[in-house]
C-alpha cells in the first residue's frame, strides 16, 4: 500500500466518521424513536383488540411488508413532489425508515405483549386499576423487557438501513464516501473503509445490547 493511499484513507476515515456521527447516528436514532412509537401504538391496538382500527393496521403492515424500503424512499422523496408534497431529504428518510422498521418492530412488541401472563391484567383489575393503567404500568414494561433483544436488533439493522438514504441525497456515511470517491476513484479501498465504520458502529451496539440484557435480567428470572 503506498503512502498516498494510506493518507487518503486516514483523511477520509475522519470525514466518513463525522458523517456517521452527524448524520447516520441521528438519522437512525430519530427513525428508531418514531418507529418505536409506531410499533407500540400498532401493537397495543392489536393487543387491546380495538376493532375499528384493525383494518388500518393490517393495511399498513401489508404495504410495508410487500414493498422495498428503497422504493418507499423514492416514492416519498422523488414521487410526492409531483402531487405537491415536498419533503426535504432528511425528514423523508426519517419518515420512511420509521414507518418501515415500525411495522416489523410492532410484530416483536405484539409477541412480547402476548407473552405477558394473562393473570397480570386480572391482578391489576382486582386491585382496582383500569385497563390503561395496567397496560402502562404493568404490561408494557414487561413487554419492553421481553422485546429488548429484538428491538435492539432492529436498531442495529436501522443503522445499516440508513445507507439507503444516500439514494435520496442525504449525506450520510455512504454518500459521503461516494463524494470522496468521485474525486479520487479508489472504490475498493473507500467502500471497504465505510464498511469498516458500519462494522464498528454495529459492534459497539451489540456490546451495549448484551450489557443491557444482563442489566435487565439482574432483576431476576427470565422475563
Amino acid at each position: 500500500m503506498n503512502e498516498k493511499l494510506l493518507q487518503l484513507l486516514i483523511d477520509s476515515f475522519w470525514k466518513i466518521l463525522i458523517a456517521g456521527i452527524r448524520v447516520t447516528i441521528p438519522l437512525a436514532m430519530l427513525s428508531f424513536l418514531f418507529a418505536l412509537v409506531i410499533a407500540v401504538l400498532v401493537a397495543v391496538i392489536q393487543y387491546a383488540n380495538i376493532k375499528v382500527l384493525r383494518p388500518f393496521i393490517r393495511f399498513y403492515i401489508w404495504i410495508i411488508r410487500g414493498t422495498p424500503l428503497l422504493v418507499q424512499l423514492y416514492v416519498v422523496f422523488y414521487g410526492l413532489p409531483s402531487i405537491g408534497i415536498v419533503l426535504p431529504a432528511f425528514p423523508s428518510a426519517v419518515f420512511c425508515l420509521a414507518v418501515n422498521e415500525g411495522a416489523y418492530m410492532a410484530e416483536s412488541m405484539r409477541a412480547a405483549l402476548e407473552a405477558v401472563p394473562k393473570g397480570q391484567l386480572e391482578a391489576g383489575y382486582c386491585v382496582g386499576m383500569s385497563y390503561w393503567q395496567i397496560m402502562r404500568r404493568i404490561i408494557l414494561p414487561q413487554a419492553f423487557r421481553t422485546a429488548f433483544p429484538s428491538l435492539s436488533n432492529s436498531f442495529i439493522s436501522m443503522i445499516k438501513s440508513t445507507s439507503m438514504a444516500s439514494t435520496i441525497t442525504v449525506t450520510e456515511m455512504l454518500r459521503q464516501t461516494q463524494i470522496i470517491n468521485g474525486r479520487v476513484y479508489q472504490s475498493f479501498a473507500l467502500y471497504m473503509e465505510v464498511g469498516l465504520v458500519y462494522l464498528i458502529f454495529c459492534t459497539v451496539l451489540t456490546w451495549l445490547q448484551s450489557y443491557g440484557e444482563k442489566k435487565l435480567s439482574a432483576y431476576g428470572g427470565t422475563r
Binding site: G119, E122, A123, Y125, C126, G128, M129, Q133, I138
Partner: peptide
C-alpha cells in the same frame, strides 16, 4: 372491586414490581 380483593392460585404478583411496589401499586394508582 374497590371493596373487595382477590388472591389467585398462582399469586399473579406484578412481575416488574418489587414486593413493596406490588402492594402500593393499587393504592397509589387506583
Amino acid at each position: 372491586r374497590r371493596k373487595t380483593a382477590f388472591v389467585f392460585q398462582n399469586y399473579n404478583l406484578f412481575l416488574n414490581k418489587t414486593v413493596l411496589q406490588n402492594v402500593t401499586e393499587g393504592l397509589i394508582i387506583a
